[in-house]
């Protein structure tokens, strides 16, 4: 396996406030890396730094061996990185179908968009049922599926997932994670996952990074992370 996404010494600022101090991480081709850490540690900021939104950043970020540091978000999408942002970011006043069409914005042909939509409806049949509904009227779980589906539309090589479990009932969260597992195999997509629910995250991931105050303090396999005493104590509550 080779590194698909690689961050080295990434620093980031919101205005004058430094949020990331030293982030190094790798997502392997076809792999799942998860970022864990407390609230405010810099998990979401790391994703934003990769996507070049809302933050100013420094360091080296490369995708497929190519630096993406100077690129804008919309160009990054074209390279094959999908983003499921925190709070899902669906277009609530547009229909489910239009949301997916927008997901396929970077696809050139109408046919490719149609094909993509069929694929997503296959993954999430409920979305097909609701396709003419305004996205804002969907349940939280359905909106999360829509956000994931939207990001998968252009067949990205990697998706950045920001807290897919946020605000959802436990049963629905389990469902979403099952689907993620399925997507990983079906679509062959790599995942960088930020998740509060460390248990679920470590169960899905093969690599894990622990972030504290904007620094990666531990970078190892998910297995090792799960057995780490501090992690067990602080994040898993065992």
């Amino acid at each position: 396996m080779s590194a698909l996404l690689e961050l080295q010494g990434v620093k980031a600022w919101y205005g004058a406030v430094q949020a990331l101090r030293a982030i190094d991480l790798v997502v392997e081709e076809g792999g799942v890396t998860t970022l864990i850490g407390a609230n405010g540690a810099g998990k979401t900021t790391t994703l934003r730094a990769i996507y070049n939104v809302l933050v100013r950043r420094e360091g080296s970020i490369s995708f497929n061996g190519r630096s993406i540091l100077g690129m804008s978000a919309n160009d990054i999408v074209r390279l094959g990185i999908g983003h499921v942002p925190d709070g899902r970011g669906t277009f609530s006043r547009l229909s489910v179908e239009q949301n997916l069409q927008l997901g396929g914005h970077v696809l050139r042909s109408r046919k490719a968009v149609q094909e993509g939509m069929r694929r997503i409806y296959g993954l999430f049949p409920i979305l097909q049922e609701r396709r003419l509904q305004q996205a804002g009227t969907l349940s939280g779980g359905e909106q999360q599926m829509l956000a994931i589906g939207r990001a998968l539309m252009p067949r990205p090589k990697l998706i950045l997932l920001d807290e897919p479990s946020f605000g959802l009932a436990p049963l629905i969260v389990t469902g979403i994670f099952d689907t993620l597992r399925q997507i990983r195999h079906q679509e062959g997509v790599s995942v960088l996952l930020v998740e509060q629910n460390v248990n679920l995250a470590l169960a899905l991931a093969d690599q894990a990074c622990l972030i504290e105050s904007g620094r990666v303090v531990k970078n190892c396999s998910a297995e090792t992370m799960r057995n780490d005493d501090t992690v067990k104590h602080v994040y898993l509550g065992i």
């Binding site: 996507y51 939104v53 809302l54 804008s72 978000a73 919309n74 999408v77 074209r78 983003h83 942002p85 970011g89 669906t90 277009f91 609530s92 006043r93 547009l94 927008l102 997901g103 914005h105 970077v106 939207r150 990001a151 539309m153 252009p154």
Partner: peptide
Amino acid sequence: VNPLSASFVGVDV
């Protein structure tokens, strides 16, 4: 309606 999300799907806002 949502410039940030639009840029996430590759729209050049």
